[in-house]
């Protein structure tokens, strides 16, 4: 069985996001980029499944410009067998991403897709669901546990009310939530070995996907800054302030 894991190059979670002064986007100049943390969890899960002997190959795929090879090298160092870079604009919309992945799932004949539940840059959180719909296969989103058994998978999902366990037939798309696992540390010798692992490069056209965006982003802006707080001297001062604001 092959597992396909999509990974996305995103601004690192430690970076303080700054909107460009002309409001045309987010400032990426000199900014640290990383593998989307949920995708890292997805990679870890796929590797653990393979290490248990339940899968033969873990293929990582990213869609973006050539800089995203850096993130592919990271997941190759974690242990993925090979990687695919689909060259495309990095602002591709979720539907186009899902269509691209569908083409790859079919090309590779992957039985399981494990994706991060969302990317931390645009927070769309749509690709896994769309992909399952396009493939007409089962989906199990927000997974905190995955157990494979032959042609099916038992997946524990994180839902509002608690945990829900469902059984899905393979092929299936699973999206990884935060508590699924804790990704491994990458070992230095594995980074070196990862440099020699293959990365295939494909274009959207080769996969027959139209990458034209359906949406236009008109403006980017930072959340408005919070007004600084004030200190009041005593209870009377507090009551006075509350009255002033019409809250009492």
């Amino acid at each position: 069985m092959k597992i396909l894991v999509p990974v996305k190059r995103v601004v690192d979670y430690n970076v303080r996001i700054q909107v460009k002064s002309d409001n045309s986007g987010v400032n990426l100049d000199g900014v640290k980029m990383s593998v989307n943390p949920f995708d890292e969890i997805a990679v870890e899960e796929a590797l653990r499944i393979k290490e248990r002997g339940e899968a033969e190959e873990v293929i990582a795929v990213t869609i973006g410009d050539s800089a995203a090879q850096e993130q592919l090298r990271t997941v190759l160092a974690m242990g993925c067998d090979r990687a695919i870079l689909v060259e495309a604009p990095s602002d591709l919309e979720p539907l186009a991403v899902a269509k691209t992945l569908k083409a790859l799932v079919e090309k590779e004949d992957a039985q399981l897709v494990i994706a991060g539940k969302q990317a931390i840059d645009d927070d769309s959180g749509q690709v896994a669901q769309m992909l399952a719909a396009l493939l007409s296969c089962a989906q199990a989103t927000f997974a905190s546990k995955i157990e494979l058994a032959g042609d099916s998978a038992k997946v524990t999902r994180e839902v509002d009310a608690g945990l829900e366990t469902i059984e899905v037939d393979l092929p299936a798309v699973v999206s990884a939530d935060l508590r699924l696992n804790e990704p491994r540390y990458v070992k230095l010798p594995d980074i070196m070995k990862a440099k020699r692992k293959p990365i295939d490069t494909l274009s959207l056209a080769e996969l027959g996907v139209d990458g034209t965006n359906q949406l236009t982003v008109s403006n980017w802006s930072a959340p408005s800054a919070r007004e600084p707080g004030i200190k009041v001297e005593d209870v009377a001062g507090l009551v006075g302030k509350l009255k002033e604001k019409g809250l009492l």
Binding site: E182, P183, R184, Y185, K187, L188, P189
Partner: peptide
């Protein structure tokens, strides 16, 4: 080393440095 907790004990992902 990676993966040592604040008390100096090895965590589950412990990876000794090379």
């Amino acid at each position: 080393d990676m993966g040592i907790d604040k008390d100096g004990k090895q965590k589950s992902g412990y990876t000794p440095g090379i």
